[in-house]
Design a protein around this nucleic acid. Structure first.
Length: 613
DNA sequence: CCTCCTAGAG
């Protein structure tokens, strides 16, 4: 759980460095293309001619003379073959200095010449440098760490850290920052944190924090990312764009809507115009936090959308079950000339399966292969299995699993299993479970689905057997919980939970809710509950379901008319769905529930999913 | 003359 206090403090203090991203980006691009006013040539041909003149005059062996040409060739964005030429200019030098090694290494890690990166070549060059007895300078290590990061060479990087200390660069902020970043890219958040903490307070910069936040985000440690973001703000730093992008990404995964929104507010106060990175992160954050309208508003206001932006919007709409709109956005993406990639097709196919758009989904799958020449991967097949199975075409779905070129995956069988639950096909469900067992990929939830299905079919013994089987196999079930965000703090509930300080009020509220619902003619449906107990007991259990506890607390501690946002790791049950829809009507509240797959938004008695999920 | 950081995926 995310500490509520930490977050709410962060919210009020967020500010940002006043920069002009467009200018900075333009300058960076111009410099990289070698079109800087200092650049001695505008093409590889001109560089060759200039170098030939040097050779004639015997100046090609002098680093001072060769340097501008070396840099131009090593850093050109689109001069095919220029990296090899840069290497030959370098090789002709009599006494290359650290600067010259740095330039060539920089070219290798940046993919100079436009021909792709070559981090291994950069590392080899560093080894040469050490062998030749040339002392690295403070610019050297950042390039070498970057090369290690690109190679995922954790061991080499750690050795390099020792080297860095020996040479006395452990107080150099750029070398340290690139060390943090290197650990982050290797997925080693703890080592990144340690490198960060080894820096003195006055050596740390915004870039150090930003590398740390990126390390947490990359490792999937989102709560720690948001916590560190709060710490950064409390320590008086103004987060720069990349820190905010990392923090927003973490908020998106956590569903930490309030923190995400406070970052957006700070941006609106301090920045004239958001760049593509920032806006895309905001689109993703709002969509994953349940505010699809805000996501759409940010998206619509952008005039510099790229493929990532469309992709975030498409998968956001998929998450909310708005398949039609997702397809429209996808069409706009193609119309605007962006080439769809594998990721956006995951979003598109997902949108179709969640919205039950069978024909459209099948068409997209064809279009992906025929028009956009993409080879579907296991994820795409998983979406198609899900699409067909949910729509009731269980046998077709099963046949598709058999035809997967990548071989059947557990997610594909699990999609089928879930669809069997929806459509009540016990026989095929058993088969899917067998296949999951064969893959050695069963989890507790799979056995529970089977157990529930047997219970509904009144096979009491089989139901009990499936339940014990999960335990016998040592499969732990993640405890089900539901959480609600109130004033930036997250309150978490499990079923029948009485541990909250306001438990009495919450249960009183539940009682009120139940009472009102019954007045409207609602009776709790306990048929999904696989519990060997009397009807009264079953009703008691259903009534204190964690989603309802979270909803009750949300209703009672947020102002009249405000939306209630619940996040749960459970699957939305039919009973809870009907219950939430009625509550939204009776209390005049919008209720947004993020379950383990998607969002349900209840408004005036209806859900955005149109009862298809 | 150069360096740190950043977004999407059943």
């Amino acid at each position: 759980m995310v500490g509520g206090l930490v977050l709410s403090q962060a919210q009020h203090q967020v500010g940002i460095a006043a920069t002009s991203p467009a200018q900075a980006q333009a300058a960076e691009q111009a410099a990289f293309r070698g079109r800087d006013h200092r650049a001695p040539c505008a093409s590889l041909d001109e560089a060759r001619k200039a170098h030939a003149r040097h050779v004639k005059l015997g100046l090609d062996r002098s680093p001072r003379h060769a340097r501008p040409l070396l840099a131009a060739c090593a850093l050109a964005a689109d001069w095919p073959g220029s990296m090899a030429y840069a290497a030959s200019i370098f090789a002709a030098l009599d006494d290359p200095e650290a600067f010259d090694y740095n330039t060539l290494m920089r070219g290798y890690v940046a993919g100079g010449g436009g021909g792709g990166r070559d981090p291994a070549a950069a590392l080899r060059l560093f080894v040469d440098m050490v062998d030749d007895g040339v002392e690295p300078d403070s610019y050297t290590f950042p390039f070498v760490f970057k090369a290690c990061a690109q190679l995922g060479a954790l061991q080499e990087g750690r050795q390099l850290q020792g080297h860095l200390v020996k040479l006395g660069f452990q107080r150099d902020e750029h070398s340290q920052n690139s060390l943090i970043s290197f650990y982050g890219k290797c997925g080693e958040a703890d080592l990144a944190r340690r490198a960060f903490e080894q820096m003195e307070d006055d050596e740390q910069t915004t870039a150090s924090w930003s590398a740390l936040l990126a390390a947490y985000t990359r490792a999937g440690r989102w709560a720690e990312c948001v916590e560190s973001f709060g710490a950064m703000v409390r320590a008086g730093w103004r987060p720069d764009e990349s820190s905010m992008v990392s923090a927003l990404s973490a908020c998106a995964h956590l569903g930490a809507h309030d923190v995400g929104r406070s970052i957006h507010c700070a941006l609106l106060r301090n920045t004239a115009r958001l760049n593509t990175f920032m806006s895309t992160s905001l689109v993703d954050m709002y969509a994953k936090c349940g505010c699809i309208e805000n996501a759409a508003a940010v998206f619509d206001a952008m005039d510099d959308k790229n493929a990532w932006t469309y992709s975030a919007m498409v998968s956001g709409l998929a998450l909310h079950g708005d398949g039609r709109k997702a397809l429209e956005v996808f069409d706009a993406m193609v119309r605007e000339g962006h080439r769809p990639d594998a990721a956006v097709y995951v979003g598109v196919l997902n949108a179709c399966s969640r919205a039950g758009l069978l024909e459209e989904g099948l068409r997209c799958f064809d279009r992906m292969r025929l028009e956009h020449k993409l080879t579907p991967n296991a994820q795409h097949y998983g979406c198609m299995v899900d699409l067909m199975a949910r729509a009731g075409r269980l046998d077709d779905a099963r046949a598709l699993i058999g035809n997967m070129p990548t071989g059947p995956t557990d997610t594909a069988w699990r999609s089928l299993l879930n669809a069997c639950r929806i459509h009540g096909n016990l026989e095929l469900a058993e088969r899917a479970l067998q296949e999951l067992e064969r893959l050695g990929a069963t989890n507790a939830g799979d056995y529970i689905i089977l157990s529930d299905m047997h219970a509904r079919a009144h096979n009491r013994d089989a139901a009990a057997a499936r339940r014990t089987e999960a335990v016998d196999r040592g499969l732990a079930q993640a405890p089900g919980y539901s959480a609600v965000e109130v004033h930036g703090a997250t309150h978490r509930f499990v079923s029948q939970d009485r541990s909250h300080p306001r438990a009495d009020d919450i249960y009183e509220m539940l009682h009120q809710m139940e009472w009102q619902l019954r007045f409207e003619g609602y009776t709790p449906d306990t048929s999904e509950l696989a519990l060997d107990a009397g009807e009264e007991e079953k009703r008691r259990v259903v009534a204190a379901h964690s989603q309802k506890l979270a909803m009750a607390f949300g209703l009672l501690s947020t102002p009249e008319g405000a939306p209630v946002r619940v996040v749960t790791n459970l699957r939305m049950s039919k009973e809870c769905h009907a219950y939430s829809a009625l509550i939204s009507e009776i209390f005049g509240r919008e209720i947004v529930v993020r379950d383990r797959n998607r969002f349900h938004r209840f408004k005036r008695g209806a859900c955005s999913c149109g009862n298809y999920w």
